[in-house]
Amino acid sequence: MDSVLAASGLGILIVMAIALARAMVAPTVYDRILGVNMFGTKTVLFIATIGFIMGRPDFLDIAIVYALINFIGMVAVLRFFEYTSESN
């Protein structure tokens, strides 16, 4: 069973890598924000899986913090992005 968990951990890691590639090479700024947002949600899942792989599932607090900070980061980006586009 832990080999399945490890495989799914690796799978999520690959998806994170693709989302990271999208965030780095992005035609418009919105694509970059999209890449970062997808990267964030995938990291939440990755941390949850890692908790199970390492046999210490009580670390899910960190996954919760991830989801929180990802959401707040998203709101901050949108909010200040409107300012930067106006200011120059």
Partner: peptide, 19 residues
């Protein structure tokens, strides 16, 4: 703007590595 976004990803990756 992209630098800060990538820095956000950098911090997340650091935290994942620490886990």
């Amino acid at each position: 703007f992209s630098v800060v976004m990538l820095f956000g990803i950098y911090s997340f990756l650091c935290a994942a590595l620490f886990v």
